[in-house]
């Protein structure tokens, strides 16, 4: 049997780069889709609100794993064979967009109503209202929960291992298959995830405290 060695640990740390890359893809993709969705959720048109809300309910009521299987195996059999990285990136984008949209909707709604009224009175149009008055304030409210949600994204990239994409969790399984020391290996894998996620959690909490410094 092969002994667990420093090389294995190095291999795991290198695989973590893919975890980080996948997290970035998911976050950027999720933000690009999530922001329009959040704006649709607070739109005046009932149709736009309904569509966005249907999407969010659908995704938040389905496990990410099933979305992943649908886009990898499902689309594959229908004739669109996706690369594991693309399938994982796509699924995580779909997932992150739904959650980010809901978080950001809350933040847009948290901007005091008087700000809308004041900008109306100043004769700003809808675009100007969002761009110069509402969104800059919403961003400040949104930063702590968004950073907090990044932790969820990083953790959920571990599911990409299921479709054979070699990121941190899959690398752990591969090392385990040759060394048979699951406890030690998955503890190390867990520690690497912790090393990525904990700073994000701390940052989120710090930002939260800073944002509420005026209150309490």
């Amino acid at each position: 049997m092969i002994q667990l060695s420093a090389n294995h640990v190095l291999y795991l740390v290198e695989a973590a780069r893919w975890t980080i890359l996948l997290s970035l893809i998911a976050f950027v993709g999720g933000a690009l889709v999530g922001l329009p969705l959040a704006l649709m959720r607070v739109a005046r048109s009932r149709l736009l609100r309904g569509l966005a809300s249907a999407y969010i309910q659908l995704i938040q009521g389905t496990p990410l794993l099933i979305v992943l299987f649908l886009s990898y195996f499902g689309l594959g059999i229908v004739g669109f064979k996706l690369d594991p990285l693309v399938a994982a990136g796509l699924s995580l984008t779909i997932y992150a967009a739904a959650f980010l949209a809901e978080i950001w909707r809350g933040c847009i709604e948290a901007v005091p109503k008087t700000q809308w009224e004041a900008s109306d009175c100043l004769g700003l149009n809808a675009f100007q209202q969002y761009a110069y008055v509402i969104l800059p304030q919403a961003v400040r409210i949104a930063t702590p929960p968004t950073v907090g949600f990044m932790v969820q994204i990083v953790k959920n990239t571990s599911l990409a291992s299921v479709i054979g994409f070699v990121e941190l969790a899959r690398a752990g399984q591969i090392v385990n298959n040759s060394t048979f020391e699951p406890f030690a290996i998955f503890a190390i894998v867990g520690a690497i995830y912790f090393a990525i996620c904990y700073p994000l959690s701390l940052a989120s909490r710090h930002l939260e405290r800073k944002a509420h410094a005026g209150r309490s």
């Binding site: 932790v151 953790k155 571990s158 599911l159 969790a169 699951p182 406890f183 998955f186 867990g190 995830y193």
Partner: peptide, 15 residues
């Protein structure tokens, strides 16, 4: 809260 559920499940089952 800072590690994936998948890894927690692996530690309980395989570990």
């Amino acid at each position: 809260r800072n590690t994936p559920l998948l890894i927690q499940i692996f530690i309980v089952y395989f570990g």
